[in-house]
Structures are given as C-alpha cells and as structure tokens.
C-alpha cells in the first residue's frame, strides 16, 4: 500500500488528481473501520491529517468557514457560539478519543444518513467548498449528499471547507439513542432560529436515506412564530411542528429501531427543540 502524506493542500490536490482511487483519510474514524474489517483494501491512502491549511476556521462575522480538517473536539470548544447546534452534535459523537481525531470533512464525506453533524449544517443552510487542481466550486450540502453514503464529490475533488451563516439566534440538536454515549443516532433533529430574517432551519438525521430538512415544518414555524411579540409559544404549534417534522421523514426498520418509533421520536424531539429554541430567544431579549 502506498501512503501519501502531504503537508500542503496543493500537494494533496495534486495527489488526488493523479490517483483518484486513493482513499482520503483524515481522522480515520470511518476509513480505518473499513480497512480493519477488510471491507476495503485500497492500494493507496491519501492522508489529509497533516495539512494545517484546512484544520482551522474563520469568519467575517456573517459567514463561518470551517476547514474540513477541524476536529469534533475543536468544534465543541471553538464553535459553540457561532454554531451551537453543530457544537452540540459534535459533542455527541463517539468518545473523547474519537472526537479528538474525527473531522467535520470526514463526517460529511462519509455522508451517513446518521452523520451527526449533517442535520445541524442543513438547519443552517450550509454549503460545501470543493477543491480540485482545476479550481473550486461550492455546493449546497442538501445537494451534495445524494444518497446513503453517496455524494457529488468528483474523483479529483476534496472537501476543503464548510460554509454556513453564523448563528443569529438559538439552535438545538437532539439525538435519540438507548445508550448515553458512543451511539449511532436512532434518529436526530436540529433546529436553528434566525430572528434577523425570521426564518427557521431544520435537519433530520437517521430517518431518511440522507439527512434532510423538514421544509414544510420550518416554513410553518417561520410563518406562525410570534416574532414581533416574542410571546409564548402555543404548545399546539410546537406539537404540529413536531408532526410535520415526523411527516418529512422517511425512516426504515433496522437493528437500531423501527420506522414507527423513529417517526414518533422525531415528533417528540422536534417539538421539544422548537420550544427550547423559542424560550431561549425570548429569554435572550432584555425585559421592558
């Protein structure tokens, strides 16, 4: 096996162009499982973990650009303000050891229906920045993931960064599992309020072939939330929101749960998450 370990991004793109069959590996928390199990026997690996250029993040105040190589631990520590739901999701991934290694780019590239960061990024309307030796393009995350573990990534491309608007309001992420840690989601949900533009973003995880937004639910919430008065959220509104989220899902029965339970649980966590987000927003506004 040939192991490429560039330290510069341009070199990594060059290797990628020359050897499109080389398997990119960053934290290795997905790729090594495939290798160890024998499910994959690649001739080449392209190690991205030594490239400092893509491991940080920055912001112009409005948009956050998170490098693909940022670890889940760094997300929890550094992005809790600009991306609270993403930071919550990152904190539920694996164990401390896994969070120290696993990267945001890896979670996106794997494109698992249960990828924990994906619903939060969908809720923010995130886009992925893809690089190749030929140039760069930016694709909405919702379009980038095309199926279970399938993406639009071209054979000569690498994920360079993720772009999303910095939070302007509360966000929440919830993940259902029978174990308190080290658990793949039975289902998950993210909600993001953007009071500046009076919009609501959502993301559903592990309850459809890909993570997806609950469009009808988020439009409904944006429409009926009392943005002007910041009044109390009618529980029936939150309940209906939850039902719309459940309706947007397309779950299956598998070893982790039944489709019926997933829909039910999604309605519960979506309702709760909207209430929390709205209560946070009301609490954040100074009285009188």
């Amino acid at each position: 096996m040939t192991f490429h370990s560039p330290t510069r991004w341009a070199d990594a793109l060059a290797v990628r162009a020359e050897h499109p069959q080389a398997v990119p590996i960053a934290g290795g928390t997905d790729a090594m499982v495939e290798l160890n199990s024998g499910r994959r026997r690649p001739d080449r690996l392209l190690d991205l973990s030594r490239i400092a250029e893509v491991s940080g993040w920055d912001t112009d105040g409005g948009t956050v650009r998170a490098g693909a190589g940022i670890t889940h631990t760094a997300i929890v520590a550094q992005l809790a303000e600009s991306a609270p739901a993403l930071a919550q999701a990152a904190s539920t991934v694996g164990s401390p050891q896994i969070r120290n290694r696993a990267t945001l780019g890896g979670n996106i590239a794997t494109a698992s229906p249960a990828g924990d960061t994906l619903p939060t990024l969908l809720a923010c309307g995130a886009a992925v920045e893809l690089h190749s030796v030929g140039g760069a393009r930016t694709v909405a995350l919702a379009d980038f993931v095309t199926g279970p573990k399938r993406t639009q990534l071209a054979p000569d491309e690498l994920i360079a960064a993720v772009l999303f608007p910095a939070a302007t309001g509360p966000q929440h992420f919830s993940k259902v599992g029978v174990r308190a840690a080290m658990i793949i989601a039975v289902c998950s949900f993210a909600v993001a309020l953007f009071p500046d533009r009076r919009s609501v973003g959502t993301g559903i995880g592990a309850a459809a072939p890909t993570p997806r937004a609950a469009v009808e639910a988020q439009d409904f919430a944006a429409e009926v939330l009392p943005w002007d008065s910041l009044g109390h959220l009618d529980p029936a509104v939150a309940g209906y929101f939850g039902d719309l989220v459940a309706k947007a899902a397309d779950p299956i029965d598998d070893v982790r749960g039944t489709a019926q339970y997933r829909r039910h649980a999604l309605a519960v966590i979506a309702r709760r998450a909207l209430i929390w987000a709205w209560d946070d927003l009301r609490g954040a506004v100074p009285c009188g």
Binding site: T92, S174, G177, A180
Partner: peptide, 11 residues
C-alpha cells in the same frame, strides 16, 4: 449529564 440533549426534564 450526558446523552443526546433529548430532554430538559420533559417526560
């Protein structure tokens, strides 16, 4: 203390 942020005491 842990888990998936599923409840703040509800239920």
């Amino acid at each position: 203390a842990s888990g998936g942020h599923t409840t703040r005491g509800e239920g």
